[in-house]
Amino acid sequence: MAMCITAILMMVIIMDEFLWRAGAAGLGLAVIAGPLGSFVVWRRLAFFGDALAHSALLGLALGFMLQIEPALAIAVLCAAFALILTGMLSRAKLPPDTLLSIAAFTTLSLGLIALAFVETLRVDLISYLFGDILSVTRADVMLVWGGALLALAVLIAIWRPLLAASVDEDLARVEGGDTGRVRLAFVLLLALVVALAMKIVGVLLVTALLVIPAAASRRFASGPEAMAIYASIIGAVAVVGGLFASLKFDTPSGPSVVVAAAAIFAATLLFKRRA
């Protein structure tokens, strides 16, 4: 009898291990996406984050060609692209959204072309565009959590100057803040998180996981830290809910997580916003 129960339990554990890994990786991402996404919203960098995410595919292709760990290749390429884009935005005469659109679609197209040369990847394209959270390995979980905690530590270290620069850049500079350096650190963190999120929600959905939980938590928060923490919690709920739905209704996992986040956001609209 006891052996029977043990056997059933074992089966449940084995069957669901991929789900546990998916959940663990998704939660790791939610932890950093909350505070980072809040800054994306405050600094109006949603398009910037999206442009970065679109370049991730190019990083993936280069990673395969040069035989480097894909997450590392994506992180490095996104970081380089983030720096170039920041420089271009400060000099360009074009409106930022136009410039970011050009950059996003150019890098996405370059990425798709580059991937076409890597035969083995062509089949998996959909999973890189929209994520394949259920194929997450144990190593991926470690990578996501390691990266997320590192990013969180850096974010906490630069929190005050970053917040001051996000509230009003001119004021922060007059008060002696090195807003340029803080901005650079922030976009590098964004690049890192895009690389981490690629496998979980995919290139096209990364920004959703940054922006939607933050936007949803705004309604309840009366301070910046509260908004960041609530965003993490909302992101975590969306990950768990999305995965559950994905399992139950056999829907793709990345989009399911995003739809869960959007559903939470829609529900928050019923509440009165705090000022």
Partner: peptide, 11 residues
């Protein structure tokens, strides 16, 4: 003017 975003809750 203050460039503060309305989505940034701050006292």
């Amino acid at each position: 003017k203050l460039a503060i975003d309305p989505n940034l809750p701050i006292s």
